[in-house]
């Protein structure tokens, strides 16, 4: 695999007591591409992302971002943007105020908050408390937070959840435009039809790795849609490791 993988998992296993959340994950996230991390509920997608960010320590193996564990990466918060369930905003604070807190932590001017609010379509609507936002607005707010530092690498956990059809189409175009600028995006989802229209590469996990590679290779091999291939892969206990 290429030496310049943006994110790299090597033999990552995480056990919570007697429960194994993920086991022996090995795959790379290639630069400048949108990679979909797919799996059914409880497959270990969010755990994998949290391991990548150093919020959860792996029981075995290592996950790195730009060649280093997140906590040792220089200016990590400026290079990696995160929108993830459990990486929350202050619910009782108004949207723009919440973003200003995080902008201050990143050493960014308050004017950057206005820029990202406009980018995600929340300009003029951020004077409400975050807890009073609709689910779709909350997704956009989380995305705005992830974009504050203009990062090279975006990690988005189920960003489509709660978006209306317009929002889903907007997000698809938005992510593509970010990737076209050379950014790398790792996006988790269980909405396979949506992912199929958005991603370049696919990583399928169901506790263990089932596939990692270009989407076109996965669907071309059988001529099927992603959905059929997905269920074939997660329905087996094969622990094949495929490098992107």
């Amino acid at each position: 695999m290429s030496q310049d993988a943006v994110a790299r998992f090597r033999g990552v296993t995480k056990r919570f007591g007697s429960t194994t959340a993920v086991e022996d994950l090995t795959f790379d996230v290639r630069p400048g591409r949108i990679t979909g991390l797919l799996g059914s509920n409880g497959a270990g997608k969010t755990t994998s992302m949290r391991i990548l960010l150093g919020l959860v320590r792996p029981t075995e193996g290592e996950a790195t971002v730009f060649g280093a564990p997140y906590h040792r990466l220089d200016r990590a918060a400026h290079r990696v943007g995160v929108s993830m369930d459990g990486v929350n905003s202050f619910p009782t604070v108004r949207g723009h105020r919440d973003l200003r807190i995080w902008a201050r932590m990143l050493g960014l001017p308050d004017s950057r908050v206005d820029e990202v609010l406009e980018l995600v379509g929340l300009d003029g609507r951020s004077n409400r408390r975050v807890k009073d936002y609709s689910t779709g607005m909350r997704q956009r707010h989380a995305l705005a937070c992830a974009l504050l530092a203009d990062p090279e690498f975006l990690i988005l956990d189920e960003p489509v959840n709660g978006l209306d059809p317009d929002g889903i189409r907007w997000l698809r175009g938005f992510l593509r435009s970010l990737a076209d600028e050379g950014r790398t995006i790792l996006i988790s989802s269980h909405l396979l039809s949506e992912v199929e229209q958005t991603v370049d590469d696919v990583v399928i996990i169901q506790r263990t790795l089932r596939y990692a590679g270009p989407l076109k290779d996965l669907v071309r091999e059988s001529g099927d849609r992603l959905e059929e291939r997905f269920f074939e892969l997660i329905g087996t206990e094969t622990k094949g490791v495929v490098h992107v």
Partner: peptide
């Protein structure tokens, strides 16, 4: 309680 601790850890540059 609010789950903001994760974002604080990520953006602060270290625990």
């Amino acid at each position: 309680h609010t789950g903001t601790i994760s974002r604080s850890v990520l953006l602060s540059g270290g625990r």
